[in-house]
Design a binder for these strands. Structure first.
Lengths: 358, 358
DNA sequence: TTGTAGGCGTTATCAA
DNA sequence: TTGATAACGCCTACAA
């Protein structure tokens, strides 16, 4: 909230000036320029339009919105932009919004609760018509309470609120089945005979991490494998978490045969670290990721992962924002689809110390 | 421009209501709430603040901006969002803007000139304080003329305009040296002994494509190689252009030994198509890309490319937008840095027809 | 069909 | 220090 020296008395031609130039009243000019000219004679309409064009008149949206109340703008609050997949979300979101004549404002909370709250108040101040929260939810009651309070204020002012992560709050929530996605991946590993499976998890304390962990645990349990807490390494969804994660995991269990990375980028880090240790994927190490980013098909071997439908999520969320009907507070859960590729094979006993590059 | 049934008479508590509740005049309330309360007695200030808090008052930014003139919002007009690299730009842009207390509005023109113009007028209508054009410029005089006209209207209203591609227009332009980047890549190919080099170019008629082509041509000329027009295939910067591009190129010259793809994603397409033809990179085909996206290190072999500093571009552009000094109309050219990796080797004679998959 | 007048929420000016 | 009052640019009853 700054905007210090923004040239005062700037901005373009006003409606009054157009009206004056055209020799009509502001009301008439408004009628012509706002709606498609209801109740104005052809002659005057033409004259006003001509003048407006020649003066390059553009209506002042702020002034308009003083009447309208809420603006046709959806505020997108991203919990953390570091994952490249958010781009997919934004692109789709902007597209749907634009189709409906809405604008999109995007802000990044960088996992900072205070900043998140500040942004939400700013959205309220801007009288945005809708708010979408993107990305993982903090699994924390105090936080949930504050968020609930703030979002209720939005709803009271008529703002439409959509969540795309399980916050456990009474607003329309569109999400994907993280539990099932993780379950499918780990089950596949188990079906291939893996028993010593490490997990490069996301940040501790967010619902996505917790849900995927739950899915992994279910698959392990079904396979008669005990979940080993020491084989879970928490990270930040960045590529480097995968690098560091694999190091830690191999320290804790040199006989590890598979790694479940909770996002593709971390999986790429695992690939990298495996390569530099001379471990061949999938022969020496099976790896699965999560999200199915475009590039997961381009690594060698192509990464087995689960499709996280960012684009559909975005489409649905924005469609809900710009729709006419009132919002429900349902939870819509999109399916998590397995993308089986080449990064899994059956485990082989590995000689400790066989770290020569191929 | 729609926003049909946005709940009229919505939005929160107004300043007048706060004032009334606190038993002061709107003027006093404004003094307390707007600035940090200059010229108001402590007692009143406390009272107003308390009431504002309890009523959860949030100022109406539209009403404020009716006075301010321009808003502390930078409009980012992306020429085409398909390239994943725009995400890098947006992230950095949002970060710098946020630091300065500005918001960012992002729209996508999808290479549609009309849409671009509509968006720019919308920006003007929103009284945005700054506009940044991101992505390639159409190399077309009629277009340039329209854009010039529109952007001049912005400047006249005090809006700050920054371009991040060579439009050849008198506004601050921050760009990277496409000519030199392409030159370095192709020179490297030539130094490795390549003579039959295909180009998977970007869209015809944008300056980035033209400049990179010029750089490639210079390197070829220096190497005593004639540029063959039939070895240039125009694409759309998508992965598929690389797939289709390699097919076409090999049709036109089965003895091709190297490909210069004008962005990394297209290069990944080339990788894919090469793989399915049983061509091993770099043994059978050398490949270079452009941009240095994060994943270019993760493909096998790692891609030789040129760093396109999207983040620095964004930082510089937004810093210029939120700065205090008036803008120059300079052209700032960032260096293009070669990232030599493993996707180049010396050419080997290839048997025509050895297209069995491995 | 056209114009006048009032209001939207805020800030700035000018008196008190 | 405080409070009327007049903008800001637009829209919309209501009146002509």
């Amino acid at each position: 909230m700054d905007g210090k020296r923004l040239s005062r008395r700037a901005g373009g031609v006003s409606l009054v000036e157009v009206a004056r130039s055209a020799g009509v009243s502001p009301a008439t000019a408004s009628r012509v320029l706002a709606k498609s000219g209801y109740g104005v004679s052809d002659g005057l309409r033409e004259r006003v339009l001509a003048v407006a064009r020649s003066l390059d008149y553009v209506p002042n949206a702020s002034a308009q919105s003083l009447h309208t109340g809420l603006r046709a703008i959806v505020g997108i609050l991203v919990h953390d932009m570091l994952d490249s997949s958010f781009a997919e979300f934004i692109r789709a979101a902007e597209e749907v919004a634009d189709l409906a004549g809405w604008l999109t404002i995007i802000v990044n909370a960088r996992r900072d609760v205070e900043k998140e709250m500040r942004h939400l108040r700013m959205f309220r101040s801007e009288r945005l018509g809708a708010v979408v929260l993107v990305g993982s939810a903090q699994d924390d009651d105090a936080y949930r309470e504050r968020l609930l309070h703030e979002l209720q204020a939005h709803v009271r002012s008529g703002v439409r609120v959509v969540l795309t992560a399980r916050h456990g709050l009474p607003f329309l929530t569109i999400t994907t089945d993280n539990e099932s996605g993780a379950y499918q991946l780990v089950r596949l590993l188990i079906q291939n005979g893996h028993r010593r499976i490490g997990v490069v998890a996301g940040p501790e304390g967010i619902t996505a991490t917790r849900d995927r962990l739950a899915g992994a645990e279910r698959a392990l349990r079904e396979g008669g494998v005990q979940l080993r807490r020491d084989l879970i390494v928490y990270g930040d969804f960045r590529r480097d978490s995968g690098v560091a994660g694999l190091c830690t995991l191999l320290e804790r269990d040199p006989q590890l045969t598979a790694v479940f990375a909770m996002n593709d980028e971390a999986a790429f880090g695992v690939y990298d670290e495996a390569r530099s240790r001379g471990l061949l994927i999938p022969r020496d190490l099976s790896v699965v990721g999560y999200n199915d980013v475009a590039f997961s098909r381009d690594v060698t071997p192509p990464l087995t992962t689960v499709r996280y439908p960012f684009d559909e999520l975005a489409r649905r969320a924005i469609e809900a924002c710009v729709a006419d009907e009132p919002l429900s507070t349902d939870e819509v859960v999109l399916k998590a689809e397995l993308r089986a590729r080449g990064s899994i094979s059956e485990p082989k006993a590995r000689l400790a110390g066989s770290t020569t590059a191929p």
